[in-house]
Simulated scan of single mutants.
Amino acid sequence: MNQISLLQGILLALMAFIVGIDFWLEGLFIFRPIIVSTLTGLILGDVRIGLVTGGLTELAFAGLTPAGGTQPPNPVMAGIMATVLAYTTGKNENEVIGLALPFSFLMQYILLFYYSIFSFFNVKLEKAADNADGQSFRKYAIIPMIIVAITYALVVFLSTYLAQDLMRNLVNSLPEWLTHGLEVAGGVLPAVGFAMLLNIMFKLEYLPYLVIGFILATFIEFPNLLPIALIGASFALITYFREKNNANANKEVFLTDEKEDYSNGI
């Protein structure tokens, strides 16, 4: 078991502030769990835990995307707290995914509350736009983003530094049957997340690639996942270049059909 220092707590809060801005803008997508967990592990001095928890949490949240005004469980808090819990409690990576979900739900409801009260700024933005007041428009557009970013920083600092002893004692006091259940649930969640992603992206023509990937990952022993990732990238490139060549061929056929025949002088 490890202790999070004040400096590490501040660095985690600063990271959460930056990630909160990116989550609001959806600019660089560093708010995804695979990035957030890796950065958290780097700050805590254990990149391996960050990579493992980040990969598992990313799979669990892969199919959860905002739709309209709805908000799914928050991926930022899930990524940060899964890594922090694995680091401070010594629990395995599958188990901490289940333990990190309450923090993800907490941030989800905070954001939903913010999105409700931020309608106040819409009126101000519309008025600034009607008056061509660029300075006021920028101000009212930036204020909600800063509020969200500060909230991320505060929640992360409180959860990772101030409440770490409470969390550790709570986790250690859980009965064995419950911790085992969380471990099983944590092992299932990545599969559920991947299935939700496939439900959106799956096409029958890509089924052979899925079967090949499943066989490689399940029945052939590799020292790590790099060979499978390279094979998957190769299949992606094959598909990309084939579709590109087909598109160019169809374009040439279309242009050829459009040309008129002047061989008879008419």
Rank of each mutant, 00 (worst) to 15 (best):
K91A: 13
K91Y: 11
N92L: 10
E93H: 14
N94E: 08
E95Y: 10
E95F: 08
E95V: 14
I97F: 13
A100F: 07
A100P: 10
A100W: 07
A100D: 08
A100S: 15
L101A: 06
L101I: 13
L101W: 03
L101F: 15
L101Y: 12
P102N: 08
P102A: 09
F103K: 00
S104R: 02
S104G: 13
S104T: 01
F105R: 01
L106K: 06
M107Y: 08
M107E: 03
Q108W: 01
Q108S: 01
Y109W: 14
I110E: 02
I110W: 11
I110R: 08
L111C: 03
L111G: 08
L111P: 01
F113N: 06
F113K: 06
F113H: 05
Y114D: 02
Y114T: 04
Y115A: 11
Y115K: 14
S116K: 15
S116A: 12
I117P: 03
I117L: 10
I117Y: 04
F118M: 12
F120Y: 13
F120G: 06
F121D: 02
N122S: 13
V123M: 12
V123G: 11
L125R: 15
E126H: 11
E126C: 07
K127H: 13
K127Y: 08
A128V: 09
A128L: 05
A128C: 14
A129K: 15
A129C: 04
D130I: 14
D130H: 14
D130R: 14
D130W: 09
A132P: 01
A132Y: 11
D133L: 02
D133K: 03
Q135D: 05
F137S: 12
R138C: 00
Y140V: 07
Y140S: 05
Y140P: 05
A141I: 09
I142N: 00
I142R: 01
I142A: 10
I143N: 05
I143P: 02
P144S: 07
P144F: 10
P144A: 06
M145F: 03
I146K: 02
I146C: 01
V148R: 04
A149N: 07
A149K: 03
I150F: 15
I150T: 07
I150N: 02
I150C: 13
T151F: 05
T151C: 11
Y152V: 07
A153Y: 04
A153N: 05
A153K: 00
A153I: 08
L154Y: 04
L154V: 15
V155L: 12
V156D: 05
V156K: 11
V156E: 12
F157K: 02
L158Y: 09
S159P: 07
S159G: 15
T160W: 02
Y161A: 09
L162D: 00
A163N: 13
A163H: 03
A163Q: 10
Q164R: 05
Q164I: 01
Q164T: 10
